[in-house]
Nucleic acid binder design. Structure first.
Lengths: 207, 207
DNA sequence: CCTTTTACATACAATGATGTATGGATAATG
DNA sequence: CATTATCCATACATCATTGTATGTAAAAGG
């Protein structure tokens, strides 16, 4: 066995992460051994233990490739006029999120995080989900608060309730789809549900 | 060690199931050994292997104690006038569900099923969740279809979309709460979100 | 009251996964 | 070009868990 060049080594690292994604998704994190991952990448545990300290470290690196905070999605849309249309900002950010999730890597890793792993080592998936939820809900409250001040939000529904409502709906859709992505397209159904929900919460046209 | 009477044996079986609930919830299903469960019930693996074939069998028995199909919740309300008020039937069934979930046993077992276990043996938690979701969604479509025919559902929103919307919201709330039940009361927030959502989807008063 | 089954506890063998230690061949570095 | 650090394979020791086999004392049952 010859020593690999630096780029080759980086490639095997990526290959190991790819393999981890696939095996984790199929067998679950707890039930997959490091040897299964290594062999799925045509490597040995030696390679794996060289690139990562242990399974938790590998898992952490796997997550690192798909960070997707809600605020980034909004910024990525990059439309400055959205400041005056917060409901549209929410809509476009969610659509961006849906598109991201249709990429296999994003879908797989999130499915693993949410449906195919338990606590182990220093990894606490529920804490991570909590962080994600907190971040998203906080952002939503800001945008809905802005919408309320602009009179875009139906009176009688507070920004907090609007945010909790939408976050619950999005979260439910998210979990549901990640459980079996072949049943429906997250982009299609997500767009439909999101639009109707926003329509329901929008201020009715006066006059 | 003396042999126990039949009722004592049934009690130890329940104690083992109780212990399984607690340890599963704390450590996750995959990371808890049968010995940990047995010792947490002040028993040995001998007792566990006598009452259950293996961990999967124990898990299955644990689930059996908290079956809660959506239709049963509606029937349990037992108000015959609900046939003419399908939206109210949905509401009351959900409230019944919320109340159930506040009982520690129901909360724990569902939290385990959804957040603290992976596939193992012949246990596929995602398939179980799929079944639950299918059943609930089917029932919701029926009720919303009935509501639409009675003119109770806001025009422009189909029964299917209404059902998917509500199911996504309820599911999101469900998952969110089960992740950390101390953050809020499922009954309180659930009632609030459910009522506002149903209010939004209800047909506006004509005239 | 005698036998049989029950309801466990204890002991044992087998398995598999983990982490580390070691070795080796070559790319990187000066 | 010599040296060193890198990248990985192989081998080994350890540990935890599982399933089963065996023992046993008392409850069931006649």
């Amino acid at each position: 066995m010859a020593r690999r060049t630096k780029t080759e080594a980086a490639a095997t690292r990526e290959a190991l992460l790819d393999a981890a994604e696939e095996v984790f998704l199929e067998k679950g994190v707890a039930r997959t051994s490091l040897e299964q991952i290594a062999r799925h990448a045509d490597m040995t545990r030696g390679a794996l233990y060289w690139h990562f300290r242990n399974k938790a470290d590998l898992f952490h690196a796997m997550l690192q490739r798909v960070r997707m905070p809600f605020q980034e999605l909004v910024e990525e849309v990059g439309d400055p006029s959205l400041v005056e249309r917060p409901l549209e900002a929410i809509r476009l950010a969610c659509l961006k999120g849906f598109e991201r999730l249709e990429q296999p890597r994003y879908r797989r890793v999130h499915a693993i995080l949410i449906h195919h792993c338990e606590v182990f080592g220093d990894i606490d998936p529920l804490a991570m989900q909590n962080e994600m939820a907190e971040e998203a809900c906080g952002a939503l409250i800001d945008y809905f608060g802005c919408a309320a001040r602009l009179g875009h939000l139906r009176p009688g529904i507070s920004p907090e309730v609007a945010a909790e409502l939408l976050q619950a709906m999005l979260g439910g859709l998210f979990h549901d789809w990640l459980r079996n992505h072949e049943r429906f397209s997250i982009l299609e159904r997500g767009t439909l549900l999101l639009d109707t929900q926003l329509q329901l919460m929008r201020s009715p046209p006066s006059g």
